[in-house]
Design a binder for these strands. Structure first.
Lengths: 214, 214
DNA sequence: TAGATTGTTAATCGATTAACAATC
DNA sequence: TAGATTGTTAATCGATTAACAATC
């Protein structure tokens, strides 16, 4: 029985991974939790606690081997293995994702794009042909993609999500500004841009009030 | 001296706002913390605690007036007043944001787009002309936009961020997969899509392991 | 007035930080 | 061996939940 890791820890892992990636690119061989904590503006204690949820990756008196730790976090994040991604909805965000080659570098390969709009069907985005939504079921059942990026309008999102999960999708990257209620074995990661912008707006106001008090 | 609100609370506010928006569209007049908690899958206690950070918006024996609470949360989030947004970097994500009309509905108006690429300069995105980065300083100093959306490659992000804040920008919506270290009066909200995708990858692996154990 | 539900205090739970023995 | 730094336990801090008096 494996331990459930708190989401606070999981949220931090990609950031560790990014810093370690930069260190290894600079040919840094070893790093202590103290050095890393200063770079990242967190406590050394937190780094050690976080990592020890998954195992002892360091060595007393030495610290952590950068390359090794980088690879181990990659394994924890599951990006040691490649993922196939389909994009559902060839609107602005869907096309932006399809064009964003950074994902491929991390092993996420966009394999297909779907849309309902006949004017878009047949055209290409980043070398990938946009297909009709009518082919979606067949495509999922035959190729079993790992992830569906949902970039359809929010009205369609819940029903499309229900469909694709019924057809075999187990992971949804949801860009629609709405909640998806799906069966327990489907994992969801939300990207709610409007909420992000609202939080920025909150910070702007809070900052202004702080300055007015001074 | 106003109380500092924890970021956990602030993260939840836009979600309350979204649910209240849906309720008012359905002409629901009042709601209790208990009802809302059931819809949102949180505790009623948390809703009441969160709201009471900002004031008593409810009434004993009655609950909360939907329209009133919606507007009050809007004020807390600072979206009762409009914001002007400039986009720096007319790549895929920059153009996707420029095209995303949902922001306008919340009072965020895209007023300009900038890029270094001569092939893009002069063309239009959603009716907004892409301008040369050479005009960026002048534009900021003259029109004082509220927010700069940073959608340039990660190598350029830190220096562009330093420039625009020196010229008068106080809020950055950062899409570059890198950290921005700026002076304390600049507020930053990060959207790190690759990190989001990595968290989804983690969840996929964790879910698989869970199923293998059963 | 009785019932409902808030606002708020107190209790619990979980996450972060500090401390230090283990060990390279 | 001495010094450094981890892994891990214990202490602290903060966030969430429960409880209930206040009040509409």
């Amino acid at each position: 029985m494996q331990k459930v890791i708190s989401s606070a820890v999981i949220k931090r892992l990609p950031r560790y991974y990014r810093y370690l990636d930069e260190l290894r690119k600079k040919d840094v061989v070893r790093i202590s939790s103290k050095e890393l904590s200063e770079k990242m503006n967190v406590t050394a204690s937190q780094i050690r606690q976080d990592l020890n949820n998954f195992g002892g990756f360091g060595q007393q008196g030495y610290g952590y081997n950068v390359e090794y730790l980088y690879n181990e976090i990659g394994k924890i994040l599951g990006i040691d293995l490649p993922h196939t991604v389909i994009i559902i909805g060839a609107g602005n965000i869907g096309r932006a994702i399809a064009n964003y080659d950074d994902f491929l570098r991390r092993g996420f390969q966009i394999t297909a794009i779907f849309d309902v709009n006949p004017e878009l069907i047949g055209s290409e985005v980043n070398g990938i042909r946009i297909q009709s939504m009518e082919h979606l079921r067949e495509y999922i059942e035959e190729t079993k993609p790992d992830i569906a990026a949902l970039t359809v309008p929010k009205e369609q999102a819940p029903s499309v999500a229900a469909d694709v999960t019924a057809w075999g999708i187990h992971a949804i990257w949801n860009f629609a500004p709405t909640e998806l209620f799906l069966s327990g074995d489907v994992v969801i990661e939300n990207v709610h841009l409007t909420e992000s912008l609202m939080r920025l707006s909150y910070k702007i106001r809070a900052q202004k009030q702080k300055q007015d008090e001074e």
